[in-house]
Amino acid sequence: MFFQINPSNGIPVYEQVSRQIMFAVASGSILPGEMIPSVRELARELAINPNTVARAFRDLQDQNILQTVRGTGVAVTHGARAKCISARTRVIRDRLRDVLAEARQSQLDEAELQAIIDAEFENSKKRKH
C-alpha cells in the first residue's frame, strides 16, 4: 500500500499506520468495501512489527473504519469515508495548532505570520497545478 513509516519521528508507529490508512480512505485511494492487506502482508511490506499493524487495525476497527470479513480478511466499512475525512481534518487542525503555538513562542509578529501563511498558500496552489 506504499505507506511511509518513520519510526523515529516521535509519532508512534501504530498511529502512523492508522493515520495513513485513514488518509487513504479519506482521499478515496481505498474504497469502502475494499480489502486491506492482512496484518502479515502489511507488516512485511512496511517492515514493521505485525503487532503494531494489528494494533492499528484494532484501533481502526474500534472506530468502525475497518471491519473483519470472515474468512477473507479486513475491509473498509461503508461510511468510513466520512469519518476519515473528518479525522483528517482534525489532524490537520492539530498540526496547524502546533505550528501556531510554536510561531507564537518564537515571537513572530502576527502580520508576519499572516504573510507567511498567505505566501505558502499561494505556493501550494501553484504546486497543485
Partner: peptide
C-alpha cells in the same frame, strides 16, 4: 531478514 522476522512473529 526483516521480512522473515516479521513472518515468524506474525
Amino acid at each position: 531478514f526483516l521480512e522473515s522476522m516479521i513472518d515468524v512473529a506474525a
